[in-house]
Amino acid sequence: MIRVAALAGALLVWALVAYGNLALEVMNPVLLPTPGEVGALAAVQIRDGSLAHHLAVSALRIVEGFGLAAAAALALGLLVAVYTPARLALEPVIEFVRPIPPLAFLPMFLVWFGLGETSKVAFIAYTTFFPMFVGTGASLLRVDVMLLRAAASLGASRRDLLRRVVLPAALPGIVVALRLGFGLAIFVIVGAEFMGADAGLGNLIMEGRVFFNPAQIVMGALLLGALGSLVNALLLMTERRVLRGRALP
């Protein structure tokens, strides 16, 4: 209830500011689109199907890039957690590459993977891999040694320990890492689509800029927010199911 009210409140503030500006002309009203203008634009683009197309294109890129990165982060995180030489070899390389802002490499991705889908998917995968790898690796490595002792004294083999203790114990941390990765995917898709894309929410925003249509920019941004919070809500729901018993009901 509070959540719905808060969202409605935010919308109200936007409406007050925008319509207030329309009446008082503090700045050129074109620069501050009203909810009505954005809604009307959305209605047009929903009717001609272009909005759905942009949304679908971006969503597919995010899902593919994020999925690839999540799979790689889980596999390498597990490897690093169970095999110390792999950790010692991988850590310095990853810690060197990780702090480089991925946007610095975006032009290279376009050169290497072309202007098509591959470069966007690869770029999202590259960007989201690092936080997810660090998160999964750390949660797998930081499993309480007492839990391992308890299981070992109940007869657990190395394989049992991994499957029945390390993985379930690390799961909360892994879920958080996936949520962070997904948030980042939505963040960088825009950048990837700014450069050389013919569809997608980033492209929609870029088009709004090029053709001077602030309403379209705002609409694109709102859609990204909606997409992000929708997926976050889904992940939170999964998290709660997975983590039942971890917190007080």
Binding site: D144, M146, L147, R149, A150, A151, V165, P168, A169, L171, L243, G245, R246
Partner: peptide
Amino acid sequence: EYVLFPWL
């Protein structure tokens, strides 16, 4: 500290 498996 008991060390029960909290997910079970």
